[in-house]
């Protein structure tokens, strides 16, 4: 018996590697976690009449639209990174991933800025707000907070993978796997943005 040998016994019904498949499964599971949270938000909103709609075009919608653009663009650069890695262009991969991380951090910065604005100027906190509808703040910070945790974790994850790619430690499959995660985080925002922000546009 050699110390390390490669086992090639299996078939692969989906023709993708175990790592991307594992990430796909995680994504599906996490999608249900977020769905449950979005359903909770809808439940709270439906069961409470007079749900506040306080978001004005400036700054809330302007900022959140800019954040959406940032996330979408970061997804685009991430897709380019995956593509570059598949074509064996390591340096381009690292550059594209760096751009992705930068936009992700930009998203977090804008988001935190918005949070603090809401807390200080709008008096909307986790537990209270001017409309005495405590669940407004709770669902808002809960949903966006869990998403932000995902973005932060994703930035760290991408940074580790990018560093590994730069040192030649990680391959195309690892970049692809991290890309799946990043796109998923983007995808979740595609539901949070309309449901939380646009449905609360001041009228």
């Amino acid at each position: 018996m050699e110390r390390e040998a490669t086992w090639e016994g299996g078939g692969s019904p989906f023709a993708i590697g175990v790592k991307p498949l594992g990430m796909w499964l995680f994504v599906v599971s996490d999608a249900l976690t977020f769905s449950a949270l979005l359903v909770t938000y809808t439940y709270c909103r439906l069961s409470n009449p007079d749900w506040p709609t306080p978001f004005h075009f400036s700054p809330s919608i302007l900022f959140s639209t800019a954040m959406t653009f940032l996330l979408l663009s970061s997804s685009f650069t991430m897709a380019l990174a995956v593509r570059a890695m598949k074509n064996g262009r390591r340096r381009q991969t690292v550059r594209m991933m760096a751009a992705t991380i930068a936009m992700g951090l930009g998203f977090v910065a804008l988001h935190l800025n918005e949070w603090f604005h809401l807390m200080r100027v709008g008096n909307i906190t986790l537990t209270d707000n001017p409309w005495h509808q405590p669940l407004f703040g709770a669902t808002f910070f809960g949903l966006t907070g869990l998403h932000m945790v995902h973005v932060c974790a994703g930035s760290i994850y991408l940074a580790i993978v990018a560093a590994g790619v730069a040192r030649g430690k990680f391959g195309a499959e690892d970049v692809e796997t991290s890309g799946l995660y990043w796109h998923f985080v983007d995808l979740v925002w595609m539901f949070i943005f309309p449901m939380v922000y646009l449905m609360s546009v001041a009228r």
Binding site: L25, V28, S29, D30, L32, T33, A36, L37, T40, C44, L126, T127, P134, L135, G137, A138, G142, L146
Partner: peptide
């Protein structure tokens, strides 16, 4: 497990928020 625990996780986070964060879910 993949689906059921995903939802329990949400419920657990919300309950913890109610207890420690003062929310009212």
């Amino acid at each position: 497990s993949l689906f059921a625990f995903a939802v329990l996780l949400t419920a657990g986070i919300l309950l913890l928020l109610d207890r420690l964060g003062g929310t009212s879910f």
